[in-house]
Simulated assay, not measured.
Amino acid sequence: MFAADPAFEVVGEAADGAEAVRLTMSLAPDVVLMDLRMPGVDGATAIARLAEAGSPARVLVLTTYDADSYVLPAIAAGATGYLLKDAPRAELLRAVRAAAHGEAVLSPAVAARLMDQVRPAAPALLSPREHEVLTWVAAGATNREVAARLLISEATVKTHLLNVYGKLGVGDRAAAVAEAFNRGLLTPRRASES
């Protein structure tokens, strides 16, 4: 694909990470497209070796893997960017140009993963007590039973439930339980937990 574009010159192709390091050091390309899963030396190790050797080449990871276990080591090793192989041709060409100019290039999925890594966790939607009340309601307890178990008044249970309804955007206890399961705030109990 790159060889067919007159704006690019493909100077080499490697079958594994060790060969990629050797060719990069001898051919001195501006940009290296590096896969991560290769026989022998993997891509992240090859990227780190290039950085240690002082190679000025920009390394753009081009792979099918977008899991944190691949993304983070590659970027930590010195990759300039990280794209997935299903990226459209125009995006790949643009990414290589950007990498050649020293710009960081990340596929949207990878950028989202990195942002999730550095962003503080979102505050809990429900307070611990609201969650506790809703858990008992999901187990079938009445307001009176919840109050007795938590050593609070029925009025306090009702107040907690009204807060839960407001936070979940629902109007009754059944809808609150259903919405909490949908959002992953509650998880089904196994028979052994009953």
Results as ranks from 00 to 15, higher is better:
residue 85 K to F: 10
residue 113 R to V: 11
residue 119 R to C: 06
residue 132 E to P: 01
residue 97 R to S: 07
residue 122 A to V: 08
residue 96 V to Y: 01
residue 98 A to R: 08
residue 96 V to R: 05
residue 130 E to N: 09
residue 113 R to A: 10
residue 97 R to G: 02
residue 132 E to W: 06
residue 87 A to K: 03
residue 87 A to G: 07
residue 97 R to T: 09
residue 119 R to Q: 11
residue 106 L to I: 03
residue 99 A to Y: 00
residue 100 A to C: 09
residue 125 L to I: 10
residue 102 G to V: 04
residue 119 R to N: 04
residue 117 Q to D: 11
residue 106 L to R: 04
residue 92 L to F: 02
residue 92 L to K: 04
residue 109 A to I: 10
residue 115 M to K: 13
residue 104 A to F: 11
residue 109 A to H: 10
residue 85 K to T: 10
residue 129 R to G: 02
residue 112 A to R: 15
residue 96 V to K: 02
residue 85 K to M: 07
residue 91 E to L: 14
residue 127 S to G: 13
residue 104 A to M: 12
residue 119 R to Y: 02
residue 125 L to F: 04
residue 117 Q to M: 14
residue 81 G to F: 00
residue 110 V to H: 02
residue 106 L to S: 03
residue 82 Y to L: 03
residue 126 L to Q: 04
residue 104 A to H: 11
residue 108 P to M: 06
residue 89 R to K: 14
residue 128 P to A: 11
residue 129 R to P: 04
residue 97 R to P: 00
residue 83 L to C: 01
residue 98 A to T: 01
residue 98 A to S: 10
residue 107 S to K: 02
residue 85 K to R: 09
residue 115 M to W: 14
residue 103 E to N: 08
residue 88 P to N: 12
residue 131 H to W: 10
residue 129 R to W: 05
residue 123 P to T: 13
residue 96 V to D: 06
residue 116 D to M: 12
residue 91 E to H: 14
residue 122 A to Y: 07
residue 132 E to S: 14
residue 119 R to D: 03
residue 131 H to L: 14
residue 101 H to R: 15
residue 114 L to W: 04
residue 116 D to P: 00
residue 116 D to F: 06
residue 105 V to E: 02
residue 122 A to P: 08
residue 89 R to I: 15
residue 115 M to P: 01
residue 105 V to L: 07
residue 102 G to R: 02
residue 99 A to L: 03
residue 92 L to Q: 02
residue 116 D to I: 08
residue 127 S to C: 08
residue 95 A to V: 06
residue 111 A to K: 12
residue 126 L to F: 05
residue 93 L to A: 11
residue 80 T to V: 09
residue 120 P to V: 08
residue 123 P to I: 07
residue 111 A to N: 03
residue 110 V to W: 01
residue 128 P to T: 11
residue 97 R to K: 12
residue 80 T to C: 11
residue 119 R to I: 05
residue 101 H to D: 12
residue 111 A to Y: 05
residue 86 D to N: 12
residue 123 P to W: 05
residue 112 A to V: 12
residue 106 L to A: 04
residue 126 L to C: 04
residue 125 L to H: 08
residue 131 H to S: 13
residue 113 R to F: 01
residue 100 A to K: 00
residue 108 P to H: 07
residue 102 G to E: 01
residue 127 S to P: 10
residue 126 L to G: 03
residue 99 A to G: 04
residue 88 P to F: 09
residue 110 V to L: 06
residue 91 E to Q: 15
residue 123 P to S: 10
residue 108 P to K: 09
residue 92 L to W: 01
residue 83 L to R: 02
residue 128 P to C: 04
residue 110 V to S: 00
residue 96 V to S: 05
residue 100 A to R: 02
residue 123 P to V: 09
residue 90 A to I: 11
residue 83 L to Q: 00
residue 86 D to A: 07
residue 107 S to V: 00
residue 90 A to F: 13
residue 86 D to H: 14
residue 96 V to I: 12
residue 107 S to E: 06
residue 102 G to W: 00
residue 97 R to L: 07
residue 90 A to V: 13
residue 95 A to G: 05
residue 116 D to G: 15
residue 121 A to G: 13
residue 100 A to I: 00
residue 127 S to E: 15
residue 93 L to T: 04
residue 88 P to R: 14
residue 124 A to N: 13
residue 130 E to Y: 05
residue 83 L to N: 00
residue 95 A to R: 02
residue 120 P to Q: 10
residue 106 L to W: 02
residue 123 P to A: 15
residue 120 P to I: 03
residue 111 A to H: 08
residue 91 E to I: 10
residue 96 V to G: 01
residue 118 V to Y: 15
